[in-house]
Amino acid sequence: MSRKVILCRCEDVTLADVEHAVAAGYVELEEVKRYTGFGTGPCQGKECLREIALALARAAGRAPKELAPFTTRPPLVPTELGLLAGRGAPARRRGGKAVGQGKAR
């Protein structure tokens, strides 16, 4: 069952993945982020951090308040390299979406 519960939608991290990480000895959010890849996709944890933290707390038998969130990293939202380079709007767009796999925001 836990293999079908998706907690991180960007990276397809399931409840089973979190339980697996705990079984391997990784019980901090920073560790579970690295072991499962949760929070490394377009949302950078904004959608999944709470769900993963609760699942981790349950699996590891820890109180949620003991868990520190992982370090938030810039940029605040996915940002085109062309904009950061000061070249204005992205050069190539198709149907309003930037080339690539990410969701336009």
Binding site: T40, G41, P42, Q44, T71, R73, P74, P75, P78, T79, E80, L81, G82, L84, A85, R87, P90, A91, R92, R93, A98, V99, G100, G102
Partner: peptide, 12 residues
């Protein structure tokens, strides 16, 4: 140049 439309998601 083609990377101009690609988004940075994280830096460290």
């Amino acid at each position: 140049p083609i990377l101009g439309s690609v988004k940075v998601v994280r830096q460290w």
